[in-house]
Amino acid sequence: MSKRILTVDDSASMRMLLRVSLTAQGYDIEGAEDGVHGLARMQEVDPDLLITDINMPHMDGFELIEAVRALPRFRGTPILVLSTEFSEEKKTRARSAGATGWITKPFDAEKLGAAIRRVCP
């Protein structure tokens, strides 16, 4: 069975881009438009991997990661941040919130795939 990935990004075009790139690599992709919806979808979809943006309305990526990690069933679920930001400060914040890794936008589909394989069995 193919792996399920939940992508959370407030930009519809970014979600579609992820969907198209990752579906081609054999993943099942679900999407959500902000942290709040992401948290709800997380529990419905129970994905193998969460990929989230940082800057989003309502609930940002840091808050989403913290909220997801606070749920016992997702303690070991890999979470990748996909953001245009790359400052050390933001990365540290993401890490302490519970992120597994950080990918900088714009992404290269192949390298994204490699990064996913490193965290998602």
Partner: peptide, 24 residues
């Protein structure tokens, strides 16, 4: 280090409700 309360502090129920009512 991360205080469990602080972890979820940014996402109060009210916040979540507000955003849920935001249109899909």
């Amino acid at each position: 280090d991360a205080d469990p309360a602080a972890r979820t502090g940014g996402t109060s129920t009210a916040d979540i409700k507000a955003a849920e009512t935001a249109s899909q």
